[in-house]
């Protein structure tokens, strides 16, 4: 619990993904606008950027942290069973399919 992701960092990544998505959407709309009628007033309202509240960000940090913790824990169990003290790529490979299905 003492370490984890910084909510601000996660928010920065989210913002970047969202702005990229918005740009893509705007590009699509521009194409539509050329072909169709002009509905400029509604779109600007719709394209206001997405935000997130602080608790949601803390929760997202926890979710990503859980993912990392699970990845290491499951791989560690496999490595332990093999009697090796280092988690190698093969150990991660073994747990990867189920891990990805769980998140």
């Amino acid at each position: 619990m003492e370490n984890g992701f910084d909510p601000d960092l996660i928010y920065a990544i989210f913002k970047r993904v969202w702005s990229r998505k918005t740009r893509e959407r705007e590009a699509n709309e521009d194409v539509e606008m050329v072909g169709g009628s002009e509905v400029g007033i509604g779109t600007s309202k719709r394209n206001r950027p997405t935000t997130a509240n602080s608790n949601a960000l803390k929760l997202s940090c926890e979710l990503i942290k859980l993912f990392v913790a699970e990845a290491v824990n499951r791989a560690a169990i496999i490595a332990e069973a093999e009697g090796i003290n280092t988690i190698e790529a093969t150990h991660l490979e073994r747990v990867l399919p189920q891990l990805l299905l769980d998140f």
Binding site: E2, F5, A69, A71, V72, A76, A79, E80, N85, I87
Partner: peptide, 14 residues
């Protein structure tokens, strides 16, 4: 985070 988790098992992460 990963190193803290691995330490619980006395493991190192390559």
């Amino acid at each position: 985070i990963a190193e803290t988790e691995a330490k619980k098992y006395d493991m190192e992460v390559s």
